[in-house]
Design a protein around this nucleic acid. Sequence first.
RNA 1: GCAGAGGUGUCCGAGUGGUUUAAGGUGCAGCCCUGGAAAGGCUGUGUGCGAGAAAUUGCACCAAGAGUUCGAAUCUCUUCCUCUGCGCCA
Length: 427
Amino acid sequence: MINIDLIRKNPQELVERYKKREKDIDLTEILELDKKRRATQQKVDEKKAERNTVSGQVPVLKKQGKDVAPIIAEMKALGEEIAVLDKELGEISDRLNYLLMCLPNLPDDDLLAGGKENNKPIKVFGEQPKFDFTPKNHIELCKDLDLIDYERGTKLAGNGAWIYKGEGARLEWALLNYFIENHLNDGYQFILPPHMLGYACGLGAGQFPKFEDEVYWIDKKGQDSKFILPTAETALVNMHAGEIFAENELPKKYFAYTPCYRREAGSYRAEERGMIRGHQFNKVEMVQYCTPAQNKQAFEELVEKACKLVEGLGLHFRLEKLAAGDCSDSMARTYDIEIWIPSMQIYKEVSSVSTANDYQARRNNTKYRDAKTGKTEYVCTLNGSGLATSRVFVALIEQCQNADGSITIPVALRKYMGGQEKIMPKK
RNA sequence: GCAGAGGUGUCCGAGUGGUUUAAGGUGCAGCCCUGGAAAGGCUGUGUGCGAGAAAUUGCACCAAGAGUUCGAAUCUCUUCCUCUGCGCCA
């Protein structure tokens, strides 16, 4: 959520800043409603103040033997006036709040304007592998090595579902273990959150109302229902909703493993077969809560951690700074890690590291108490995948394949696979 | 899922319609006392939305929402959660 003071003070400047996101935002209704809300509240407050004082005197007057009937009648009329105004105030506030909840985050100043086309590679790690044989794509490899069963996955759960089996399951699990151990070593706290979350979590993370139709609802869509999380961020970023941290508790560093469940409605394309995009994929997610002063360093730390994980697998990838329009609506700044998929001749996102600044904290009311001033301020929340396994899996088996059809397991994963060095084709 | 008991501030806990600061304690902060500390004493002590240059001040908040009433922590309804017991458990 955007600080409404900023909107009051300089709406035109905000409109300009949103243009970097290629969004035309009209703030006039918000400004009008805000004015109206304050005026109405003032009226209601005055009338309530009157009712409080007058009603409070009733028992006193009664004791003195005075006739209170006229006062009660008067207050009844006043009460009806209050009810009308209160209802009006409620409607104004609801609408205003809804509009504020729909406003995207402000992009950080140093971001380039525009969309995807203005994303900027910052650093390239490793080199594109050269093959002196005809490399297979990951679907062929998974079938020949019997790692993934696509047909039966579809039989069980339809399009966009697959089954990890045998060494495939083991490789996936090894990746998760490798990530987890890394985060533990860096002092992050391991969280296994519930997968079914209440509506407030989606709203607090900034995913609702916009993405209400992109998640799976348990029962029915709506505020009194639950949805299955599309990323562990949704859970992690709401754990401290409504709480006030002491400044010395920050930064707070968490990571969680969960599958991520997404409808991905209408987003499939022919080239995204296999495990490039599925309704369920595994991910380890990192989240930090920190003060605004710690924000920059926390962001760099998360980027570095994500890079280190891919680097440790010896895979070729690049780090990209996203242009304002390509950052998701809740985020002020995002760096993507994109991994090389040889068969597609393209880099695909395996991690997205972002800071929301105080945008999410304002939505779910997460604060800290400044040690010097004693005042409460909103925290900053940051998140980064560390990492999403399904695409790392794809890149890994494609980049590490050999002429004989086997794949070489990265050294970092071997201890999670009983020391095994290669996965050999069956036959 | 059924039945009973609950949900009050940092925490403990009183409060079952009214003299309006939600008692009292505890914790925390400041001050007094002390050579220093403990004990003791005094003062202060939440969040949100408004008004005001500021001091200050209005409203709201006793799990959440709705209702009854001149007036609700207190009464009614709905929902959520916790505890105890029973039931269910692929």
